[in-house]
């Protein structure tokens, strides 16, 4: 009933929208408004007629809470990251980065990885910053090393790790080393195998251009990046909430027995849970049935690859890039944490 009613409405509105079709953008605009209106109607219908009971199911309620929690928690860091990327775009001249980073890309990669220490935030902040770095002439390999290491090696996250694992400073050291190693290896891997055509051209970040107000450029870049990345953040939060509510505790226990499977399992869990890098140490500490190496894999993979991050990367750099890069990063991160964890833990 409801559906046919809406279909009729849609057809009618389509005709209305098509009528003043003298300019294409006008029609497209009308259509996007129509889409929004339709979506609103459908959502309201769901909420009012079908959804009331359904939205209040315990599982759905928990899903809504977790989804909102991930979004709210990430919001300040996303703002920090996009403001920083807008500022880099508008205020920092290209030559600054040329002077700061070694000229040879092979050397620039580890330097950029270590530079990740300065961005005190979680992973949401690093994606827009890396994007604007690339646009400002930093070699992509170095920007990716920064992107990967920044959320894992900054002092806030390392302190949280030390607090979560009292009495085992080896865990902090192993996390630092394995994260830096993964970031550097991925940077070099990009130098070796990466193709520029996988990257969506970062047209937005043209830098400061003469005759334009820097403040205006900053605000435009900031606003664009925030809205864009924010939309993808919501996609990621929804995915993470789904896994968070759907993965039952009993699954965890079946995997904790085998050392090899448990490493792979916790790495996969880090990808689907998308816990913020400032909190993942506490989650890892609570997974007490697993070996230290498996928990290290959780800590190294989590800030570098997770569903929220894949959504953000797909939005910023393009889907072709996000899929290849995340898959390769996950493999490298697991190998690095097994090697370094095997020695240190």
């Amino acid at each position: 009933m409801q559906e046919t009613h809406e279909r009729v409405e849609e057809a009618g509105a389509e005709a209305v929208a098509a009528a003043p079709a003298d300019d294409a953008p006008g029609r497209e605009r009308a259509r996007s408004w129509l889409l929004v209106a339709l979506a609103a109607v459908v959502l309201l219908d769901l909420a009012l007629f079908v959804g009331r009971g359904w939205l209040e199911e315990p599982a759905v309620r928990a899903w809504r809470t977790v989804c909102l929690a991930v979004t709210v928690q990430a919001m300040p860091f996303l703002l920090l990251g996009t403001a920083l990327s807008g500022a880099i775009n508008a205020f920092v001249p290209t030559r600054v980065f040329q002077r700061l980073l070694p000229r040879r890309a092979v050397l620039a990669v580890p330097v950029a990885g270590v530079a990740g220490v300065v961005l005190p935030g979680c992973e949401c902040a690093s994606v827009p910053v890396a994007n604007s770095l690339i646009a400002r002439g930093v070699t992509p390999a170095a920007a990716f090393a920064f992107l990967l290491s920044a959320p894992a090696v900054n002092p806030v996250v390392l302190t949280a790790t030390a607090v979560a694992f009292p009495g085992s400073p080896a865990m902090v050291a192993a996390r630092l080393l394995a994260s830096l190693a993964t970031a550097a290896v991925m940077g070099w891997l990009w130098l070796w195998l990466g193709r520029p055509q996988w990257l969506r051209p970062a047209v937005r970040h043209t830098g400061h251009r003469p005759g334009h107000s820097r403040l205006r450029e900053f605000r435009d870049g900031f606003q664009h990046d925030f809205l864009h990345a924010g939309g993808f953040l919501v996609v990621g939060a929804m995915a993470a909430a789904t896994f968070n509510v759907a993965v039952p505790q009993s699954v965890l226990e079946t995997f904790s027995g085998s050392p090899w499977l448990s490493v792979l399992f916790l790495a996969a869990l880090a990808v689907v849970l998308a816990v913020c890098s400032e909190a993942d140490a506490f989650v890892a500490a609570s997974l007490s049935g697993f070996s230290p190496v498996a928990r290290l894999a959780f800590l190294v993979v989590g800030p570098m690859v997770d569903v929220k991050l894949i959504a953000l990367q797909a939005g910023t750099f393009g889907r072709a890039f996000a899929v290849r890069f995340s898959a390769a990063t996950a493999v490298v991160a697991v190998v690095c944490s097994v090697l370094i964890g095997g020695v240190l833990l």
């Binding site: 809470t65 929690a69 849970l273 913020c276 400032e278 909190a279 993942d280 989650v283």
Partner: peptide, 10 residues
Amino acid sequence: VISCCAADAR
């Protein structure tokens, strides 16, 4: 208890 947000609830 949470350490960051409700996604890491224990």
